[in-house]
Nucleic acid binder design. Structure first.
Lengths: 158, 158
DNA sequence: ATACCTGCAAAAACTTTGCAATTCG
DNA sequence: CGAATTGCAAAGTTTTTGCAGGTAT
């Protein structure tokens, strides 16, 4: 089937990114990157470890951390932050924005096309700071939390 | 002459915020909030602890963590994230933006007035998500890193 | 072949918690 | 006074590191 409009098969895309970055293509790296590209939430290192462990029993947490770190440095993925103080990862490296729920702390993606473009030319200079790109985070209340008075749902998507 | 009604003396502003939030005003809380409001960087809990310890020897790390947590919940300050995975705090709660250096990971403030307003009415609705505010992060290269010859795809020296 | 990776286990870094004493309102 | 806050110390999380052996290019 032709599922995703943009990113093809996560495994194929993972391979492509590893190759493009000139990084060693080991089973562990393939598995970690494929896992991340196959989901749209923003998993923690631990969640990635758990998921990858099912396909690659014996992979170690240390490897997951090291690999995520290497990928982040090379720009294969992004490290982001939810309401808590745990590192989270996002396989999307294209321009897109985020919706942050002030009630439950959940963070979800928002296509760049949903917002008007900022009139900031790439390469613009702001006080000596050369601008390459930008990201916007919209703060508000998500649909799940809209109904409830105060109690956050016990099943958010952080 | 309108005396900039925004942040005056950090201690005064701290007092005002504590009172407005209806939080107990203890020496520890005054010290932590005053310290944070008196600096423009985004210190970690540990850095705040160190600084406050000089004025209030004996304050415990646990108190600093608890107090920062309480303040964040009540909106007296914001929790943010640098390149690393350590919780950081920002005394500014008004709309302002950030400049993120892709080389060194440094994050600095940018006045909201430096960017055009996004035409997003507060209260707008985006797929069931009620929007209250937004923040923009500009990615690029800071002045300090501009000189370095690290990985200059195109570094014309202006 | 050899430089880079991985697993393991221990350590470090960061944050939270239980409780008794103290302080704020 | 009664309720909330603090310190201390211990426990819980999350992330990093040193090595020996294994693997990719």
């Amino acid at each position: 089937m032709g599922p995703s409009p943009i990113e093809a098969d996560p495994a194929v895309e993972a391979e492509r990114r590893l190759r493009a970055a000139g990084l060693a293509r080991t089973p562990q790296r393939r598995a970690v990157l494929t896992e991340l590209l196959g989901r749209t939430d923003h998993p923690t290192a631990e969640q990635i470890y758990e998921a990858v462990s099912r396909r690659l029993p014996g992979i170690s947490r240390a490897t997951v951390y090291r690999v995520l770190d290497a990928f982040t440095e090379r720009g294969l993925l992004n490290r982001i932050q939810h309401a808590d103080s745990v590192g989270r990862f996002d396989g999307r490296v294209d321009r897109h924005h985020h919706l942050l729920c002030e009630r439950c702390g959940g963070l979800s993606d928002l296509e760049a096309s949903a917002l008007p473009e900022l009139p900031i030319p790439a390469g613009a200079d702001l006080g000596g700071f050369r601008i390459a790109d930008y990201r916007i985070t919209l703060h508000g209340v998500c649909p799940d939390c809209s109904g409830d008075a105060h109690d956050p749902p016990s099943n958010p998507t952080p």
